[in-house]
Structure formats: structure tokens, C-alpha cells
Design a protein around this nucleic acid. Structure first.
Lengths: 89, 89, 89, 89
DNA sequence: GTGGTCTAGACCACC
DNA sequence: GTGGTCTAGACCACT
């Protein structure tokens, strides 16, 4: 059921992909944004959901989301959630 | 103050060089696993403890642990520690 | 499935509003401290556990814990947890 | 002996200063760089030393150092240490 | 009930 | 023996 990023040394989701879990999670979420699965200006799932989905720790999820925020793909609103970046404020 | 590797070998041999330290450390830890001092499926002490206990460098400890892992005696879980191999759960 | 606060009060009272939940939770926890269920200088369960146990929101739990802290019954250590107050070490 | 940043709810080093430990540590180190205590192109102490000096966790120290790196005040060399930024590479 | 900060401590990669 | 990444889980601030 879960979309495992990796099962820790058992398998990697993509052997040609990013080296670290943080970067792998970021890559998956980046793809979801670019594909429109997470549409502009819409909220993305909370941290807790990614923790469960990918089976990684909260800091790893947060590090991945920080990458996407640095890239300008998402914005964070404390207490409200994270949103896909889009035209206008 | 520190317990040198040679202490654990009961002063039986002199240290001829760092390349032997690795095997000596591995031998000590292997004995602890086989004696049950480190029981199956239990975590073994962290790298840092062996560094201090044996007075050797981190790469030496890691090389010794890699030997035991190659032998299938321990398994490694990043961020969690190393565990003595045992019956599957 | 969840243990409601009212269960812990033995259904003695009805809930007239959320402002009372805080005091009820505080009263339950106060009783646990005084009875020794939560012994001095020991950590009490984390916020999340009380949220689940009592079926109340995080702010309600935190407000209840703040009461106990004001009363000097518990102390808070960020990143570590809350502890029952007791003789100094 | 230690230059405490704060003793966790007991006192803050500067009540008008930064709100978070991370920012407080960053501010102290920033001041040392600007004062010349940590001169340009010289190595600054390792993470472990700041952990001990300030009595904070490793992630907090790293977060503080990340701020200074973002500001361009220090550069990081894996396996070698962190250095105060200075003219020329 | 979200994200924000912090603690503690593990193993990893590199020098 | 440095910095890099990761785990696990606590409390905090805000909505």
C-alpha cells in the first residue's frame, strides 16, 4: 500500500536517482507538483502523511520540503499547511 | 585509562600495525556475539563506544564491523544502530 | 473507541462546553500525580498521548498541563518532556 | 565555565536577543567572526565543541552554522571543518 | 491539528 | 576525527 522510497538497504526506488532519502522524497514530490497531481495554489498533504507514505522520519520529510521551498515550488504557512506556489499572492 | 585492544587480547600479541587492529577488533566482537554477550536480535554498542573502548579510530571500528556484517553476524540500520543477526521476525 | 474525558469522571457530569474540558483534564492528571501513579521526578506521558486518551485537542491538553505547571506540580523541558515536580537533585 | 546560551527556561542570555536557541547561537558566532575572534580563512571550532560550550544539541548547532553559511560568513569542507569566509578561494 | 523548534544519538562519507 | 544524513520523539506557536 505504501509508496516506499526505499526499504533501507533492501532496495532503492530508483538506482539512478538521488542518493539520499531526503533528495528522493523531494524528487517524488517535485514530480507530483510538475505533473499537476498537486495543482498550483492548492494545499499539499501534511508532513504526517508523507512520514507514513514514505516510511521516513519527520526531519527527512521536512528536509525534502525545505528543498522544494528553496526552489520556490511550495510556500509554507505555519498552522495552515504547505501550498503549491502559483501566480499572485 | 583507556582499555587498549591489546588488553582485551590478554597481552598475547604486540600490535604490529594498524592493519591488524581491524582484525583484532573484529575477533573480539565476534567472540562476544558467539558467547552470547551480544544476544541475537539485540543492538550492539554504537561505533563511538568501541572507539573509546579499544582506543582505535572510527575507520578501524567501521572496518571491523564491516567484516562482521560480511559474515552475516550483524546487520546495520542507519540512524538506529547495528544488531546481532538472528531468526527472522 | 476513545476514552472520553467524561468516562474518566465516571459520567458524573455533562460537558457544558470546551472551557470545562481543560479543568477536567487537569483534575484527572492532578489526581494521578497525587496518587503516585505519576511519581515525583518521573516523566509523564507526552501531549499526544493525552490528546488520544481524552479525545481532546492539543490546546486543551496544553492548557490543562499549564495549570499543573502553574501549581508547581510539573516542570517542562523542551524537547524532553514534562516531569512531576519533586525534591531537588 | 561554560558560556550557556540559556539554561532552558531558567534564563536567557539576552532577553532582547533572538528568540530561538538556534538564532542565539548563530548570533554569538556571528559576533565572533565580526570581532575577529574567528579570523578570515581560519578554521572555526568543530560542531562538538559548540555543543559542549553552549549546551545545546547537535542539530541546533548545525542549524546555527547553516544560517552563517547562508549568510556567506563561513564555508564548510566535509571531513575538514568549517572556515571563516575570506577573499579568494 | 498544522508547521516550527529542539533533544538525543545512531550510522555514513570523506579527509 | 571532521561534517553529512537519518531516526525517533518531545514540546512550542499559530490557525
Amino acid at each position: 500500500m505504501k509508496a516506499q522510497v526505499s526499504d533501507y538497504c533492501y532496495m532503492a526506488i530508483d538506482l539512478d536517482g538521488p542518493e539520499f532519502l531526503r533528495d528522493q522524497v523531494a524528487a517524488i514530490l517535485r514530480a507530483r507538483i510538475e505533473s499537476g497531481e498537486y495543482p498550483p495554489r492548492r494545499r499539499i498533504p501534511p508532513e504526517a502523511e508523507f512520514i507514513e507514505e514514505f516510511g521516513v522520519s519527520r526531519p527527512t520529510v521536512r528536509a525534502a520540503l525545505a528543498i522544494l521551498e528553496d526552489e520556490g515550488r511550495i510556500v509554507t504557512r505555519r498552522g495552515k499547511g504547505r501550498f503549491v506556489a502559483g501566480a499572485e499572492s
